[in-house]
Amino acid sequence: MENSIETIWKNGFLKDSALVAPKLNNLYNQKSKHIVDKFQRMFKMNLILIVFGSFIVLIASFMVGLPYTGVPMFIGMNVLVFLNKKLFNSLKLVDKCKNTYDYLKAFDSWLKSQININKKFARFFYPFVFLSMITGFWMKKSGSQRIGDHAVQKLLLTYPDLQLVGGVPVVGVLGALLIVGILALLAGRIYEWDLKIIYGRIFKKFDELLADIKELRA
């Protein structure tokens, strides 16, 4: 090599068109694709884990004698997966040929509708999980008797005038209904909290990206 690297560098760029800056109109394509793809991967993995978890719950519930908890939870979890799988399929219909802003807006709108549907579902799901747990423990056999019946008998010895509805203390029914009501009321928040733990970081990045694009278009 006859020339020094300094000379090669200096002379090489004298008449070069390779220093023309690329256009910036494609600025957010890669980032948006990356974020949406990441979300889709996480969402899919989440659904797989719920299905896997539902089978573990089902098997474990039979092993520990709580089938009245396990079976409803198994059904509830799979209904949740079925619902979200349907929602996930609708995401695939979002036109990827749109420009980045429209694509992200469409994704954002899908996300909001998905969250709304899941929030509504959570109003039934969380109380359902609670009731199946109560039922499971109530029905669990302890010797020849169910735990629930055994507990009622013990309570009747202490409080003989205890009012029962279908063999269950009224106070207990009211307490359970109160918890069900609270769970139904707070279900949306619990779901959002749950969502934040799993997808919080990705949602934050997504919001930043959307805000950037909006500013860019302003």
Binding site: N3, I5, I8, W9, N11, G12, F13, K15, D16, A18
Partner: peptide
């Protein structure tokens, strides 16, 4: 071969 100058490409 991004640059016109071959020595620059090698560098």
């Amino acid at each position: 071969h991004a640059f016109e100058d071959e020595q620059l490409n090698q560098l």
